[in-house]
């Protein structure tokens, strides 16, 4: 069996423990993209329920404000915000903005995403924990 250290020496650029910040962001951008693809298909199936009539449609969407559906919404919002804010960073780089200060740009867009997430979580969390936040 080939030892991990040998593999690491042979493939230094693609070995995960050698990844720097930009590489991890690249990985997470793709992982979150695939997650969003899964959600898009799930969302289409939700809409498909309209073919089974108002009763089944309303029963399913009636679960929308249960704690577990709202927990999934929290996860979805985190994924969507990471993907969109990092996408904003990618577009900024393509326009030549902030390439030399990429860590600061990344921190800035993530802070913007975090602020939006706090705003959304303020609406969602009461349904998850079953009471008003403050």
């Amino acid at each position: 069996m080939i030892k991990a250290e040998k593999l690491r020496a042979r493939y230094p650029d693609t070995w995960p423990t050698n990844y720097k910040l930009g590489m991890w962001i690249w990985v997470f951008h793709r992982v979150t993209g695939l997650f969003i693809l899964g959600y898009l298909l799930f969302h289409l199936i939700e809409v498909m329920l309209s073919h089974f009539g108002p009763d089944i449609f309303d029963k399913f969407f009636g679960w929308g404000y249960t704690w577990w559906m709202q927990s999934l919404d929290l996860l979805l919002m985190a994924v969507l915000l990471f993907h969109s804010m990092n996408g904003l960073r990618v577009i900024l780089f393509d326009l030549g903005i902030g390439i030399r200060k990429h860590k600061i740009v990344f921190a800035s867009v993530m802070l913007l995403g975090l602020a939006t997430y706090c705003f959304l979580a303020n609406d969602i969390l009461p349904y998850v924990i079953g009471r008003e936040l403050f």
């Binding site: 289409l44 809409v47 498909m48 309209s50 073919h51 089974f52 009539g53």
Partner: peptide
Amino acid sequence: AGVFFLVPLVIGKPLFS
């Protein structure tokens, strides 16, 4: 498929009721 799934909500009733 997405267009087909949306039809009941646009015409206001399930297609095969």
